[in-house]
Structure formats: structure tokens, C-alpha cells
Amino acid sequence: MDDRSHGDGHRPGGGPGDAALLLLADSRLPAGGHAHSGGAEEAVRLGTITDAGDLARFLRGRLATAGLVTAALAAAACELARTGHHPGREEDLATLWRQLDAEADARTASPAQREAGRTQGRLLLRTARRMWPSPALDTLGVAVPEGAHHPVVLGAAAAAAGCVPYQAALAAAYTAVTGPATAAVRLLGLDPVTVHRLLADLAPALNDAAHAACASLIDSVVTDDADPLAVDPCGDDRRRPPGGIGPDGDDATSSPEPGSAPGAGPCRGAGWPALPGHAAPALDLLAEGHLKNAMKLFVS
């Protein structure tokens, strides 16, 4: 992969998106993030998070599931915003944004989480459009007027700010754990340094999640774009050993070209179906329970 599209190049002094990444991931970014606990408030209420040990397990699990999924979606959105925008192609691009947003929908079974994700996305888009005005953010706002999912907006905002997909993924993974961590400090009165120690311990896992998210962008194997109703359902199995299907499969031929030319419209999005969809059944239950609880301090 080239470092332009994935940010892995080791340039002395870092890249142009580095400072923007700090702004984007900062909890002080005025985009409503401070009021989201990512399920932590309900877990505290139910007593499944009572101390720093519980919180550490909660954060690790959240990062491996929702964190990875949002990182991948953010990376995909960043890539689309960086490479997809060409004057006169707004219509195509709007379709692609809606498709990516639908991929986020399909990975969010809980309606409470979809609602929270769209609310956060809407608020972030409002803020990002004023901070980093860009045609991609405008198109996204028009394409998904009800508010795109937060990681989709985050990726588009990252591109507008000059970040690469890896940085977008890192910001998404980071906010997936810092929100609940801060909420737990407020709700349980945990020592803030203890909690930041937990976050420091998670740093390598955050990097790993961002790398995995970017890798998933070029590891496309599931090819849903053709209409399988028109082909034999076992067709795939005849072309290769059964079981070699899925994100860990070995079929490299259907992967989009790494670093493919900007504006390679038809290829764009081809890998999205295979992006990670790591589910967390407990987070789903927490989100729905939280929505029903009138006595809450956080949006999610």
C-alpha cells in the first residue's frame, strides 16, 4: 500500500494530517461527543462496570468490536472523500455515500445505536463543515440528510482536514474508547489517572485496530456486487475450496488495486461489503436498556 492513501510511510517529522488528527480526536472537539458514554452509563447502572478492572475489560471488548468496525468505516469514508470527489460527479458520489452509510446500518443491529450514531454524525458534520469546508462534506450532508453514521462523517471530516485513512481509523478507534472511559470517571468517581493508565495500555491495540481497519479496505473477498440470485449459490465453492470464503479467505483476485487511481469510481466501494462487522451483543442490550431508562445523563 502506498503511504499517501494509508499513512504508513515513516516520514521524519510526520505527515500533514498529524496536527489535524489531534484536533479531530480531541475530546474538546465541539461536536457533542462529551454526552455519549457508548454503553458505559447503562453498564454502570446495571453493575457490570464497578471498578477500573471492569472498565478495562469493557474498553478492550468495545475496541475489538465497535471500535474496529467504526475504524474501518471511517477509513473507507476517508478514502472515498479523498479520491472520489470530482466536479460534476456529485450524483455518483452521493450514491456512494449512501452505500457506505448503508454498510454502517447493516453493521449496527441496535436501533438505539443507529440513532445515537446518526445524531453524533449530524453534530460532527455541522462542526466539521465550519472547521474544514469541503465539497465532500457538502455532498455527504446532501446525500444523507437525516445524518450519516458517525464513523462515516468522521472519515469524511478527516479527509477534509487533510488526514489519510489510517489517521481517520485511529481517530475512530480512539473515540470509541475515550468516550466510555471519560463517562466512567464521571459516573463512578474513578481516579482519572488510573483510567488514563488503562487508555495508555490500550495504545498498541488502538494502533492495531487502525491497521486492521485499513487492511480490511484492501482485503475485499466477499463479492456481493454481482446478483447472486442470477448465479448458482454454490458457484463460489466450485471455483475454490469451500470455506475459503470470507474476510480471512485467500482470494486476492477480487481485491481492488492497492492505491488505485483517484476517481476510479466503479472500483470504489467494491471492498466495503467485506469490512469488519464485529458485533457486541452486550453493547446492543446496553444501548436498548439505556434508551428506555428515563434517568440518564448521557445520550448513549
Binding site: P30, G32, H34, T119, L123, R126
Partner: peptide, 11 residues
Amino acid sequence: AIRDDIAANLD
């Protein structure tokens, strides 16, 4: 919510 991050209130 009323000073540092007004996004939700504006919304």
C-alpha cells in the same frame, strides 16, 4: 453543553 460544546443544543 451550553458553553464549550454547544452542538447538541444547536441541533
